[in-house]
Design a binder for these strands. Structure first.
Length: 638
RNA sequence: GCCGAAAUAGCUCAGCGGUAGAGCAACUGAUUCGUAAUCAGUAGGCCCCCGGUUCAAAUCCGGGUUUCGGCACCA
C-alpha cells in the first residue's frame, strides 16, 4: 500500500508502487493530460517516477511557476537532438534553462550561420511532432564516462568524470538522442509545443573560463503558448526602441566616434541632462554631510603600486611616460587620492566619520569587447565617495547610506531595488582575520539597515566585501549601480591614521560607496528607463511654445520670456508650419510640455497646454501654467 | 581579449564586377493653417581604412579599424 497525500490534504491509496502519471490519471483524465511533472515532498521529479513509499505529491502543470523552467530545459535538449541529427560532427556540452529561454553550447569546427538556425528550428518542430518519449536511465559513473567517450563526446565525458565516484549518473533519452542530465524532464517532446524560437548564435568559453576553447552557443526562447512568445518578442522590440544609443542620437544628447573609442561627446541637450543629475546629486551629498573634493587626473604610478591596484589592474590602466622619465597613470579610480587628502594634517577621532565625495573622472582601458554605448566606456565619471570612520561607525554609516541611496533612486523613478552581498574573492589583499572582521561588520550593518540580501560568493573587491545595489527598470531589466564596500586594506597600505580618544594612532576604516555608479552608465539607464520621455525636472527641454499663426508670434515671445524668467528650460517654435507638424515634431523630440498659442490665446493671455503623449489640451491662464510648471520642474528634495 | 556578424547620404536601408539609388531628415520657394507628416523644387557620397586580383571593384580576396550580439572581464 502506498498512500499519497495531495496538496489539498486528501489521501489516495494505491495497491503497490505507482508512477506520477498514474497518480494524475487516478485524479482525473484532464489532469493526466496536462500533467508535466510531479513534486514529491517538495522536490520536482519526472512524471514517470515510481513511488514505492508514502509521500506528499503535487502534480505539476503549466500553471506551476517552475514548469516553465522544465519546458525550457526540454527545449535545450530538443535543440541538441536536432543539431546532432543535422550535424553529427558536433559535440554537445551543456544546455540549461535561463531567464526567458534556454541555450545549448556546442563544439563544432564550422560556425553555425543564421540559416543553420532556421534549419535547426525546423528540425526541432519535427522532433516535437514525433512526440518522442523522454525517459530516464541510470548508469555507473565510470561506465557513463566510457559510454560518452565511445560516442566521441569528450566534453560530456569530462563533465561526468568530475562527478564523485560511486554516484549514479542519470541520462535522459529521447529518440536517438541521449544526454547526461540531472533532470527532471517533461514526459515527451510534444510537450514543448510551438511557442519557441531560436534567437542567436554566440561564442562562449567551455566552462566559462577564457583560458579554455570557445564553443558555439545557440540561444532560444520558449513559452507555454504563442501569445506569451509574441509578448516576449514585442518586449524585445520595445527594448530596442528605447536603446540609449538610438535615443541619444535621435534626441541630440550625445555621440561617439572612432577617434575617441569608449568616450562620449556630450551635446548641449545631453549635457543639460548631466548637469541636472549632477547638481541634484551634489545637493543630496551636501545635505548628507559629505564634503566634495577634486583630485588629479594624472598620478605617479608609484601610488598605484602602493595601493595595490597596479598588481591587479595594471593592464587596464592608461599610463604615460613623460619627457622627464616619470611614469604616470591616468587615474582609474579616486580612492588612493582621497586617502592623500585624508593624510594631510593630523586627523582626530572627532573628525570621523569624514565623508569625502568626488565626481571623479576616471579612465580604464576596458577590453574592447566590453564596450557598449555609454553604458560601458573607458572614460567615465563616478559619483564616488569615501567615508573614513571607526569600526563602531560602520553600522550607522551603512544605515544612513542605504537611506540616501533609496531616496535618490526613488527620485529618479526606481523603486524596485535588490541587494547582493559579495564576500572575499580568491585573489585578495589583507589577512583572513581582517576579512572576517569586515565581512561580519558589513553583514550586520546591512541587516541593521533592514536589507534583504542574496549572497554573491567570491565577488567582493580585492580589498574588501561589498554590497551591490541592483535596480529594476520600467521593462523589468536589472542594472547594478550602487555599491558600498568596507575596506581596511587601503588605509593600511597608504598609511592613513587618526588619533583616537586615548591618544593612540589608529587606522580608520574606509567605506567606498557610489549611488549612480558612473554618470555615463546611469544616464544611459535613465534614458532607457524613461524611454527618453523624462519627467519635467530632468527633461533637457521642458517646454516648447509653438504658434499656430504668425499673428501670435509676439505673444509667443512674451510667453517664452516669462517661462525663462521662471527658470524653465523653454524653446520657441514660430516657424511657418502647421500646428500638426509642430506637434508631431516636438512629440518625437519627447518634449514633455507644449504650449500652443494662437490668436485666441494671445487675446486672453492664455495658453493651450498639451502634454507629451496626450490627446487633449487644456486652455489655461499663463500665470497659472507657469506656477504649475515651475512646481513640476522643481528638482526633488530642493 | 575570444567567437560570430556588420560598415553605402544626417537616419533607415537597396544595389553585390560595368556611370552610386530610395524613403525620411536638410536646404529653397509657396502656403497663415487650431493639436502627431501642406505642396513643389534643390542639394547631399574618400560606398570605414590600407593593400591585392581585374580592362574595370561599393561589389571578389588579404590585412586593419570601429560597431553590433554573446562569452570572458568589471578596482
Amino acid at each position: 500500500m502506498v498512500a499519497i497525500t495531495l496538496p489539498d490534504g486528501s489521501v489516495r491509496s494505491f495497491d503497490g508502487p505507482v508512477t506520477g502519471a498514474e497518480i494524475a490519471q487516478a485524479i482525473g483524465t484532464g489532469l493526466a493530460k496536462s500533467a508535466l511533472a510531479i513534486r514529491i515532498d517538495g522536490v520536482m521529479k519526472d512524471l514517470g517516477t515510481t513511488l514505492t513509499a508514502d509521500a506528499r505529491v503535487a502534480i505539476v502543470t503549466r500553471k506551476d511557476a517552475e514548469a516553465l523552467e522544465l519546458l525550457r530545459h526540454d527545449a535545450a535538449h530538443i535543440m541538441a537532438e536536432a543539431v546532432k541529427e543535422l550535424y553529427p560532427d558536433t559535440q554537445v556540452t551543456i544546455g540549461p534553462a535561463i531567464e526567458n529561454g534556454f541555450y545549448y553550447d556546442f563544439a563544432r569546427e564550422h560556425p553555425f550561420t543564421p540559416d543553420d538556425l532556421e534549419t535547426i528550428e525546423q528540425r526541432m518542430r519535427e522532433i516535437v511532432a514525433r512526440d518522442e518519449a523522454i525517459t530516464r536511465e541510470e548508469m555507473d559513473r565510470d561506465a557513463a564516462v566510457a559510454f560518452f567517450l565511445g560516442m566521441g563526446e569528450k566534453y560530456k565525458a569530462e563533465l561526468i568524470a568530475a562527478i564523485p565516484e560511486g554516484q549514479a549518473i542519470s541520462l535522459y533519452r529521447q529518440g536517438g538522442f541521449i544526454d547526461l542530465c540531472r533532470g527532471p524532464h517533461l514526459p515527451s517532446t510534444a510537450k514543448l509545443g510551438k511557442a519557441f524560437k531560436l534567437m542567436k548564435v554566440a561564442g562562449a568559453y567551455w566552462r566559462g573560463d577564457s583560458r579554455n576553447e570557445m564553443l558555439q552557443r545557440i540561444y532560444g526562447t520558449a513559452w507555454f503558448d504563442e501569445k506569451e512568445l509574441a509578448a516576449y518578442l514585442t518586449m524585445l522590440e520595445e527594448a530596442e526602441k528605447r536603446d540609449h544609443r538610438r535615443l541619444g542620437r535621435d534626441m541630440g544628447l550625445f555621440h561617439q566616434q572612432e577617434e575617441a573609442v569608449g568616450a562620449v561627446f556630450w551635446h548641449p541637450k545631453g549635457w543639460q541632462l548631466w548637469r541636472t543629475v549632477e547638481s541634484y546629486m551634489r545637493r543630496r551629498l551636501e545635505q548628507n554631510g559629505y564634503q566634495e573634493v577634486k583630485t588629479p587626473q594624472l598620478v605617479d604610478f608609484s601610488l598605484w603600486e602602493a595601493s595595490g591596484h597596479a598588481d591587479k589592474f595594471s593592464e587596464s590602466m592608461f599610463t604615460i611616460k613623460t619627457q622627464d622619465e616619470r611614469h604616470l597613470a591616468v587615474k582609474p579610480m579616486n580612492c588612493p587620492c582621497h586617502v592623500q587628502i585624508f593624510r594631510t594634517g593630523i586627523k582626530s577621532y572627532r573628525d570621523l566619520p569624514l565623508r569625502m565625495a568626488e565626481f571623479g573622472s576616471c579612465h580604464r582601458y576596458e577590453p574592447s569587447g566590453a564596450l557598449h554605448g555609454i553604458m560601458r566606456v573607458r572614460a567615465f565619471t563616478q559619483d564616488d565617495a569615501h567615508i573614513f570612520c571607526t569600526e563602531d561607525q560602520i553600522t550607522s554609516e551603512t544605515i544612513a547610506f542605504c537611506e540616501l541611496l533609496k531616496s535618490v533612486y526613488a527620485d529618479f523613478g526606481f523603486t524596485d531595488i535588490r541587494v547582493k552581498f559579495s564576500d572575499r574573492p580568491v585573489k585578495r589583499a589583507g589577512s583572513d582575520v581582517s576579512w572576517d572582521k569586515s565581512e561580519n561588520a558589513l553583514r550586520s550593518a546591512a541587516e541593521a539597515a533592514g536589507l534583504e540580501m542574496t549572497l554573491n560568493p567570491g565577488e567582493g573587491a580585492f580589498y574588501g566585501p561589498k554590497l551591490e545595489f541592483v535596480l529594476r527598470d520600467a521593462i523589468g531589466r536589472d542594472w547594478q549601480c550602487g555599491t558600498l564596500q568596507v575596506d581596511t586594506v587601503l588605509p593600511e597600505r597608504l598609511d592613513a591614521h587618526y588619533i583616537a580618544e586615548d591618544g593612540s594612532k589608529t587606522r580608520p576604516v574606509m567605506l567606498h560607496r557610489a549611488i549612480l555608479g558612473s554618470f555615463e552608465r546611469f544616464l544611459g539607464i535613465l534614458i532607457e528607463h524613461h524611454a527618453g520621455r523624462f519627467p519635467v525636472w530632468l527633461a533637457p527641454v521642458q517646454v516648447v511654445v509653438a504658434t499656430i499663426t504668425s499673428e501670435a508670434d509676439a505673444y509667443a515671445r512674451d510667453v517664452l520670456t516669462r517661462l525663462k524668467a521662471a527658470g524653465l528650460r523653454a524653446e520657441l517654435d514660430i516657424r511657418n508650419e502647421k500646428i500638426n507638424y509642430k506637434v508631431r515634431e516636438h512629440s518625437l523630440a519627447k518634449v514633455p510640455v507644449m504650449l500652443v498659442v494662437g490668436k485666441r490665446e494671445a487675446e486672453t493671455q492664455a495658453v493651450a497646454v498639451r502634454r507629451l503623449g496626450g490627446t487633449t489640451q487644456e486652455i489655461l491662464a499663463l500665470d497659472d501654467v507657469i506656477a504649475k510648471l515651475t512646481a513640476e520642474a522643481t528638482v526633488p528634495g530642493a
